[in-house]
Design a protein around this nucleic acid. Structure first.
Lengths: 219, 219
DNA sequence: CTACATGTGTCAAAGATGTCACAGAGGGCG
DNA sequence: CGCCCTCTGTGACATCTTTGACACATGTAG
């Protein structure tokens, strides 16, 4: 289930957001100040953060700074209406912003939009002639369905969500297997080979020596 | 260079956007109605589309429908201020929207934000005709990919992050090798030579006698 | 000219990854 | 319950790649 963290000091607004999101089927947790927010962020596992800029203890701007390298999508909530502040928020790495007072429908639309953009929401992933649909867990290549095992599918989804990026072996392994990567076996390589073969992607799933693998356009 | 397509029927606004974007260093082309826009889209190669929703010939909504499968980021421009319409635009797959009238700074912030999100604007490092992308760990020289080994890549990244600075041998070695520099072997020199050769940078990676190396513009 | 510093080419060892066959786990089904 | 099937992980082995060392050439400063 999608995990959303709301960092907002006004309990009335926080509660309103929480119940609205829960009604839509998201898992939602609230933090009422910057410090509490930072602690919640530490624990990890968030798909999206709704962040009020005006907070006690630690300011929203500082949290934004801290969030950016974590690559968690952020929607900034702000009471300020000046264009300057909106720009500042966007430049600082927010994925979207919302000005108080806002309508609940608008909140939901932005949440959905950001989640879709960041690929957390069932959205089909495309790469060359391959289409991967996370919701139905199917993969098509040129209108032909490719049957993948669970591990193969997860691995491919991860690669396709990070097209072009060189993903480390440990990141790949730990994301798919949910256990520490010690690198003593050929397990990961094996699954990569099976994927390559099934998709005919010998040149698309590239080896990055001493790092890991990468999805790359064929020359 | 980043290619932006502006589909906007009001010539005054189109021109304003075009000159603003060009001043920022983007390549920008305008289409003045839906049909012209569709033709431009056909030809491909766009990194971002700015799309006015109210267009003659073919409506912006139809173009949006057509754009979505192409996976080109879109910023919708709209004169409408009702929340309902903004929601409709976002739900239809726009990456962001902008309400007229807008400030040019806001336009630029959104363009930058969307480009960054879609990965067109990575924190790539440039030097002369060479582009290094840390995320994908690739290096391009004049659209040609240069294959580097891990050590070579790390070394080049370090040099490119410190352009013009003379970096000491011990700093270079210890940063890349993560161990003390004793300087008894030709290891570092060797890797520098290999980099020079692969990049054709015999005069760009300069030797600073008794110090180390430096990335410098060729005379 | 001398004393070092750096450039260059070659090479083999160390280490990474590809490949394959196989076996155990687990699930579905008669 | 036993059979058959698929999915996964393992280990042995084959194949690259990388990289550091060495020997020797060339360059630089004083």
């Amino acid at each position: 289930m999608i995990q959303i963290l709301v960092i907002e000091d006004d309990p009335a607004i926080a509660h309103l957001i929480e119940s609205t999101l829960k009604k839509e089927g998201y898992a939602c947790t609230c933090a009422s100040d910057g410090k509490e927010g930072a602690d919640a962020l530490e624990s990890g596992g968030w798909d999206l953060v709704l962040l009020d800029l005006m907070l006690p203890e630690i300011s929203g701007y500082d949290l934004l700074e801290y969030l950016r390298p974590l690559r968690i999508p952020v929607i900034v909530i702000s009471a300020m209406t000046q264009v300057g502040d909106r720009i500042r928020g966007l430049r600082m790495g927010a994925d979207d912003y919302l000005c108080k007072p806002f309508q609940l429908g608008e909140l939901l639309a932005r949440v959905e939009s950001v989640l879709r953009r960041s690929g957390k929401l069932g959205q089909q992933l495309f790469w060359q002639d391959v289409v991967l649909d996370p919701e139905s867990r199917t993969v098509m290549k040129k209108d032909e369905e490719i049957e993948l095992t669970p591990k193969e599918f997860d691995l491919l989804e991860l690669l396709m969500r990070n097209r072009n990026a060189a993903l480390s072996r440990s990141y790949l392994y730990e994301s798919v297997w949910h256990e520490e990567y010690l690198g003593e076996t050929r397990t990961l390589d094996n699954h990569i080979q099976r994927l390559r073969k099934k998709l005919g992607w010998e040149n698309v799933i590239q080896t990055v020596f001493r790092i890991g693998y990468r999805l790359k356009m064929e020359k």
